[in-house]
Structure formats: structure tokens, C-alpha cells
């Protein structure tokens, strides 16, 4: 079922809050449109970095994600939800979450149900590894707030988990105040972050 919420994100150049729409249950057409808008910006950046022979660590780490494939693979599955954040006629961020099959790891909530953020990314023009001056901020914060709200709605009390790409670790550690449980060898050695009920409540407060 599709649901829309009116939300706000930050225009970085002016610091102003601008209107955006959070869409729970985005359509294939919307995902295709987003990919068409995102892909050339990302491809251009990768081309530039290649030409400059920049080290791999400076490359955007999610350069080759294909959201259309993720959408197609999870379409119709009750456990998966794809959300989009739209503003200024363009998709500013996308997130795929799964609400079954992932268990919490922090001792105080071990084995309890959670919302697991399978994939989340901001549009390339909002991403500091892609452009010098990112256009919109708060995309990550609004999407994480949405994941927490989803966790509350599902009865998981705000519990949340995800594997961060290295460049985003600071965002989850500092800006979202999630617990860092260290590198997970089962998932490409990415660091695993989890949010407790208390941390989730604090984030939404």
C-alpha cells in the first residue's frame, strides 16, 4: 500500500527547510525515473575520478547499485518496503528495508525483531563523495526517522539495524547515535550498526 507524508529537508546553499514528500511504496516507474536522473551524475563522477587516477577509497562506494533490480526482486514481498524521498521534482533519496528475518544483536534486545535497512542512498547531487557542494541535507535523517517509524508501526519499538559503507560510518555513529558493533565478516566486513529502543526514541524526540 502506498502512503505519502509531507516532510522537510534542508537546502544547503541557503540553510532553508524545503518541502519534500516521503513515499512508502514507490512504483517501478518512480524507481526508473530516479535511476535515469541519478545515473548520469554518478557516471560522470566516476569518469572524472578514473581520468584523475584518484584512489579507489575516494570513489563513491555505491556507484553501481541498481535500484530497478532491487525493486523488481522485492516486488510483491510483504517483508520488503521501498521508500523514496521526493522534492524539487526529483528523487532525493531511496531506501529498501526488510521487516522480517533479521534479529537484533545488542545484548539488551538480542534476537528481537527489527527493521533492517537493506539499502539506503541519497541522490548523487546530495552526496559529498560525488559533488563538491551537496544540494540537499537531512535526506539521511528523514529516511532513518522513517525506518524508525516503520519499526514502531510493526511493533518492533524502534529497533533498527544496518551495515554501513565505510564513508557513511560517521553518519550512523555520530549523527544517528547508533551502536557500532564492529566489522561483520559475513557482510563484506562492513561495520554493523544497531539502534536500541531508547536510541530510536531519542532520535525521533
Amino acid at each position: 500500500m502506498r502512503e505519502e507524508s509531507a516532510v522537510l529537508i534542508k537546502e544547503r546553499a541557503t540553510g532553508r527547510l524545503v518541502e519534500a514528500t516521503l513515499i512508502d511504496g514507490i512504483t517501478r516507474v518512480e524507481v526508473e525515473e530516479a535511476e535515469e536522473q541519478w545515473r548520469p551524475v554518478m557516471a560522470q563522477r566516476i569518469e572524472d575520478l578514473r581520468a584523475r587516477q584518484a584512489p579507489r577509497s575516494k570513489w563513491p562506494e555505491h556507484g553501481h547499485w541498481d535500484w530497478r533490480k532491487k525493486h523488481a526482486a522485492t516486488q510483491g514481498l510483504l517483508a520488503y518496503r521501498m521508500l523514496g524521498l521526493r522534492s524539487d521534482g526529483r528523487m532525493q533519496g531511496l531506501m529498501l528495508v526488510v521487516t522480517a528475518g533479521h534479529a537484533c544483536r545488542i545484548a539488551e534486545q538480542k534476537n528481537k525483531e527489527m527493521v533492517y535497512v537493506d539499502y539506503v542512498a541519497t541522490a548523487p547531487w546530495n552526496s559529498p563523495s560525488v559533488v563538491e557542494e551537496p544540494q540537499y541535507g537531512m535526506v539521511g535523517r528523514v529516511l532513518i526517522a522513517a525506518a524508525i517509524q516503520l519499526s514502531l508501526d510493526e511493533g518492533f519499538k524502534g529497533r533498527l539495524g544496518l551495515h554501513s559503507l565505510p564513508q557513511a560510518e560517521e553518519f550512523y555513529r555520530k549523527q544517528c547515535a547508533m551502536t557500532d558493533l564492529g566489522a561483520d565478516e559475513k557482510k563484506q566486513n562492513l561495520r554493523y550498526f544497531e539502534m536500541t529502543i531508547a536510541q530510536a526514541a531519542e532520535f525521533l524526540r
Binding site: L8, G15, P60, E61, W65, P128, R141, Q167, K187
Partner: peptide, 25 residues
């Protein structure tokens, strides 16, 4: 609106990508 204002003040430009490397990266 207060929530958005509070978070806008705290928000720093950051990467947010989570989920897994693209295999060829």
C-alpha cells in the same frame, strides 16, 4: 517543525550509503 529545525541545525554533509559494496568496487 521543531524536530526538523533541530535536526537541520545538527545536520552535517555526510555520506549515508548503507547496504553493501557493489561487487566490482
Amino acid at each position: 517543525r521543531e524536530w526538523y529545525e533541530k535536526h537541520a541545525a545538527l545536520d552535517q554533509p555526510a555520506e549515508i550509503a548503507a547496504g553493501g559494496f557493489s561487487l566490482d568496487q
